[in-house]
Design a protein around this nucleic acid. Structure first.
Lengths: 339, 339
DNA sequence: TGCTGTCATCGAAACGTTTTTACTTCTGTT
DNA sequence: AACAGAAGTAAAAACGTTTCGATGACAGCA
């Protein structure tokens, strides 16, 4: 049904190879034949067939995009936005994205089919992802870019959030408002980004000559959602006279924390300032609107893609870590401490 | 680097074609050679290469999944969940999903590359999608399944929500609680599902011998998010003595409506009952938790995929409309009317 | 023993490209 | 006028599969 390269060649009165040269504009073809060929291509609406091209070039023109199932189905479209950035950028580089989710316990014989069938030229892995699958992909020596995740003991490219800079900005902002007694809400400490935020929190305070009461740190292992924030804030509230500002490790938990306060008759920010991190959608809609750190999610996805492309073109090193700068967003949830 | 079918054949001591027969278990191969071949496959970790296979079968093993950019980036993961359902089901049928977003104004020369390169065997289109692209795909005669959208004047398969049943359940529930004066909040009436919900609302009331005041219907053209719900509820509130129950066409707008009420000193459900539709994540987290209609999103995605597969296997008709039943979820936002 | 039919396996063609090598034709130089 | 080199084009091989027709072995039957 659809036109093949042979049809184009026949119509243009040239050899098949010449058509190929024109289409991929490689080699030198005279202006005249080029025009002829292009006209024929146009007329037949010819597009090279992916599989045929892939067979000879051994390139699929696809990238794999892997994230854990629970990340993807999360209420907040944090990772969805990263994907969007990648997908959009991919289009302009003529790559396609094969998205798949894997669950926490990766099992080698349930490996994404696109790996087995050599149907991708590189892989982007986003968020917390089993160590095993990274090794698995590396073994098949495909270029890898991690996003918002880092494996400490390996040498893979990664696109990372400037967690330290973000937390530092938040804390300095609060100090400038006059706060000197802080609490912290953290979750999912297995995620390197989370623990990074916590460490930055402590470090920044230490640098400012302040220290944190143990009662003012609440952290949970597994989750880092609204529920978690709510629960942890409940644990913090009994010691509410020990702090005036609460730094949450992300917006979701901050939202939960605000709710817990309001549910217990406290006012934000009059009684406590509460801050988040990530600048997700609901941070703006919240009442009071959340002071937080903006993370450019789409941009991160785009940069990861570009990094992958560069690695394939060999114009980028295979272990580059890219740290994405973030921006403090001051809204209503932070204010001067109660007197 | 990776093993080819020839390597397997050599190792097993059989012909290439025999290996192919075993791998695809077509034709009859003796138990003995089958074992030999399978052992060799195992040993070399052989997997047929997608592009080579695709070239000869003229099948890519991929499905396209298209939704509009704004749908996908929406805060609520409604469409994300549909995708998840599709992707998961696809895996068990050995298909891969190529996801792409297109913007409202589809332009034929920016068509998804997977269409041009014949890199998909069928397409799932989700949500409001330009009429033009559907025609475009149909022209290339690929099987199509629409999800949560329907084109009235065409004959395409579609997986649809039982909007009528859902609204009817909601209204009956409210009537049973004692309500007889209703308001409606609707948005994005271009989407057939939305107008369907509105019509069902009116019809159900009419059937019950009730009618709706014009002042009690608020609908906006474009959007249907939290903001819209908030704005529309503001418009409704001046006439608050004309109704005791507010039916919103989806959860997002219901959330906005609840906020507007609370912001103006009204209590939900004591002053008004407010209901939603969709049962998204935040409907449960809301205070008060939202009475709504549960829509099985993952399931819809899965069913769409299966429909596509069946169409390709020619075990399903090309214009089947599948209506997915929904379930009333009674939570806290609905109660008896104020006296 | 010779013939027919079934079953298992094989060899070769085909799918639609890209890429490499080879062949013309032209241009300019001596 | 002969020739070298460059430029443009063509022919053919290769990529890794599937599939189809051919072949051989073997059983059953006359």
């Amino acid at each position: 049904m659809t036109a093949t390269i042979r049809d184009v060649a026949r119509l243009a009165g040239v050899a098949v190879s010449t058509v190929s040269l024109v289409v991929n504009n490689k080699g030198r073809v005279s202006k005249k034949t080029e025009a002829k060929v292009k006209q024929a291509v146009e007329q037949l609406d010819y597009h090279p067939q992916r599989s045929a091209r892939g067979l000879v070039t051994q390139r699929s023109g696809n990238f794999g995009f892997i994230l854990s199932t629970d990340h993807f189905s999360q209420a907040e479209p944090f990772y969805t936005k990263i994907f969007l950035g990648t997908e959009f950028e991919a289009r302009s580089f003529d790559y396609y994205i094969l998205l798949t989710t894997i669950d926490k316990h990766f099992n080698a014989d349930r490996a994404p089919r696109f790996l087995l069938e050599r149907n991708v030229d590189g892989v982007i892995l986003v968020g917390t992802v089993p160590h095993k699958i990274v090794d698995y992909i590396a073994m098949r020596d495909l270029p890898i870019v991690l996003v918002d995740y880092d494996l400490p003991d390996t040498k893979h490219s990664a696109v990372l959030i400037d967690n330290v800079g973000g937390i530092r900005a938040i804390v300095h902002h609060l100090i400038k408002l006059g706060h000197c007694r802080f609490a912290f809400i953290g979750g999912d400490m297995k995620h390197p980004g989370m623990s990074q935020r916590f460490n930055a929190f402590q470090q920044t305070l230490a640098d400012a000559g302040l220290c944190v009461d143990n009662d003012c740190v609440a952290a949970e292992e597994e989750m880092s959602g609204i529920e978690t924030g709510y629960t942890l804030m409940q644990k913090l509230l009994p010691h509410h006279n020990k702090f005036t500002a609460v730094v949450a490790a992300n917006d979701a938990m901050a939202v939960g924390a605000v709710r817990a306060c309001q549910g217990n008759g406290f006012h934000v920010p009059n009684d406590f300032s509460i801050t988040g991190f990530d600048d997700v959608e609901s941070a703006q809609n919240l009442h009071p609107a959340l002071t937080t750190v903006h993370v450019p999610k789409e941009k991160m996805g785009a940069i990861a893609l570009r990094q992958l492309v560069d690695m394939i073109k060999n114009t980028a090193e295979y272990g580059t870590k890219i740290t994405i700068p973030v921006r403090l967003i001051i809204r209503e949830s932070s204010n001067q401490p109660r007197s």
